[in-house]
Amino acid sequence: MMKRVHFPIRSDDSSGLIVYPDQIRFFANADLAAMPGHIIADYSGSLDLPLYGLAKPAVRPLLVITQVTSDQPIQTTVALDRHEVICPQGATLSFTAELRSEDGAVLPLSDSFRLPIRQQGGRDGLLLATMVDGIVKVSAPFTVPGDDGTWMVNEAAINAGLPEAANMRFAGITVSVFRT
């Protein structure tokens, strides 16, 4: 089975190939990862490698929401310091976040992942998060009848379907949707 993996680069000067420490070889034209000294490539070998081909970092990267906008800004309140947004039913929110390293630098990684969201009453939703060069964008429409109420995303939810090596820290966000 083929899977996308993230490997540290070690060049084999005699062959022009990129060599992983376990002698797994990739042609030098594999996709260069945004992190210097690493590549992302398809791998179909028999070794059980984690998705990113790297040991779990000591400190997981931090996902930080940096901006929230609404298509109904007059009725929307954003308080990122409290990890809270209040908006009317019918609004579509756009979230921007950064994936940061331990030193606060934006990690220049690109990927997409599912973002489970749960209503306080137990209803579940699913959003798509798209990350380009460490900047994550999510569009959250609260336009369906019954979308009013309190919706939450927390660290456990965003990491639920990810391999351990790709887990992130996240303070969470609460969106309160009121009826108009």
Rank of each mutant, 00 (worst) to 15 (best):
V136R: 07
L126Y: 00
D111A: 10
T96E: 10
T92W: 00
V136K: 00
T150M: 12
L99N: 12
S94A: 09
V132W: 00
T143W: 06
M131A: 13
D103L: 05
S112T: 13
S112H: 09
L128H: 12
G146R: 01
R100Y: 02
I117A: 14
F142Y: 10
L107D: 04
T130Y: 03
R123I: 11
W151P: 15
L128G: 06
P88Q: 05
A140Q: 06
A97K: 04
P145W: 01
R100K: 15
G125M: 00
R123E: 13
A91W: 05
Q120Y: 14
T92I: 11
G104H: 06
S94W: 07
L128M: 14
A140K: 03
L126M: 14
A91F: 04
M131Q: 15
S139H: 06
L126R: 06
M131N: 13
G122T: 08
L109C: 09
V132H: 13
A97F: 06
L107C: 06
P145N: 03
M131R: 15
I86E: 03
D148N: 13
T143L: 08
D147F: 07
L93Q: 05
E98G: 06
V144G: 03
S139R: 13
G149R: 04
S110P: 07
R118S: 08
A105Y: 02
R118H: 10
L99P: 11
K137Q: 15
P108M: 01
G134R: 01
R100A: 02
A140G: 08
L126G: 03
V132G: 00
V136N: 07
D148M: 02
L128V: 10
L126P: 00
I135N: 09
E98S: 10
R114N: 11
G134S: 02
V136A: 04
D103T: 15
G125P: 02
D111S: 14
S112R: 14
S110A: 09
L126T: 06
M131I: 15
A105M: 07
F113L: 06
A129E: 00
G104P: 11
D103F: 12
R118F: 12
D147K: 01
L107T: 07
D148G: 07
I135A: 13
M131S: 15
D133P: 03
R114V: 09
T96L: 09
A129M: 11
G121L: 09
W151F: 05
L126N: 14
L115I: 01
